[in-house]
Nucleic acid binder design. Structure first.
Length: 108
DNA sequence: TTGCTGACCGACG
DNA sequence: CCGTCGGCCAGCA
């Protein structure tokens, strides 16, 4: 029903991430029905900076909960700072209790 | 226009 | 168990 582009969907799902929660690229890709295109999700996040609305890309991490894209925020550490600001504990570029704060876009 | 790259994930040896 | 490779799609030179 949604004829939006792949990026549009990624942006929408990214905005659906609750405060204090994180998700993975693969989870978004899977939600979009393109499990194999998890890389594109990350690429879409890169384009999210060009998006009109601000996308909480800092809430998006890889499957292992590691801050892979922290380098793309302009300043490394900003991503971790934002996550800690939401109550998410980050240690050594990795989300602590990642499985607890993990949120899947099941449509909830 | 063609081809490479890219913030990943899963399968295979 | 751990290292390697393929696949997905879209943007950019």
């Amino acid at each position: 029903m949604n004829e939006q582009s792949f990026f549009e969907k990624v942006y929408e799902v990214a905005r659906l991430i609750p405060h204090g929660r994180v998700t993975s690229y693969g989870a978004i890709a899977e939600y979009l029905g393109t499990r194999g295109s998890a890389r594109m999700v990350g690429w879409a996040m890169n384009a999210s900076f060009s998006a009109k609305e601000n996308i909480p890309a800092h809430r998006v991490v890889n499957r292992m909960g590691r801050l892979t894209g922290k380098h793309h925020f302009g300043d490394p550490g900003l991503m971790q700072q934002l996550l800690e600001s939401e109550g998410i504990r980050v240690e050594d570029d990795q989300v602590v209790d990642f499985q607890k704060v993990f949120w899947k876009p099941t449509g909830d």
